[in-house]
Design a binder for these strands. Structure first.
Length: 134
DNA sequence: GCCAACGTTGGC
DNA sequence: GCCAACGTTGGC
């Protein structure tokens, strides 16, 4: 079981919309490192959902329901998507500021590599953020 | 809206 | 294969 964090701008695709849809394919990744992370996702892996720009907080947990396949929005075979479904909404969103202030989370990619939109998390980091959000 | 960070592209 | 130019992301 692996853990991940994905970013979405809420006005582009929000957690609320995701919960209405119940399932979505995660498209729009056009960065090789993020793409490689998508390809490493396995069915059942858990994924934190982060709102960038507006909110700047982790708002919920999703899970991988279909492993990577050709991005249906482009014929370019370089790009893939995965299918995700919502699992639960955090009682309290965990803000970027809280994460920055938490010493055990200072090494996560969200902070160290701000522009990456799909990143792996260690189990301890994932658990810590869930704990902060409950 | 600005700008820093950083990935990508293309000329040499 | 280096590196300057350029584009994109995302925090502020």
């Amino acid at each position: 079981m692996n853990y991940w964090l994905v970013k979405s701008e809420p006005h582009k695709y929000s957690w609320e919309k995701f919960n209405e849809d119940k399932r979505t394919f995660w498209d729009g990744v056009r960065n090789y490192q993020a793409r490689n992370n998508l390809r490493d996702m396995r069915e059942g892996d858990l994924v934190l959902f982060y709102h960038s720009n507006e909110g700047k907080c982790v708002v919920g947990v999703a899970k991988v329901v279909r492993e990577s396949y050709q991005d249906p929005t482009t014929p370019d075979p370089n790009w893939v998507v995965v299918d995700l479904s919502p699992v639960e909404t955090l009682k309290k969103p965990v803000t970027l500021e809280q994460i920055k202030n938490e010493s055990s989370l200072k090494d996560i990619s969200l902070i160290r590599q701000g522009r990456l939109s799909v990143m792996p998390l260690k189990a301890a980091e994932f658990d810590k953020i869930l704990e902060m959000g409950s």
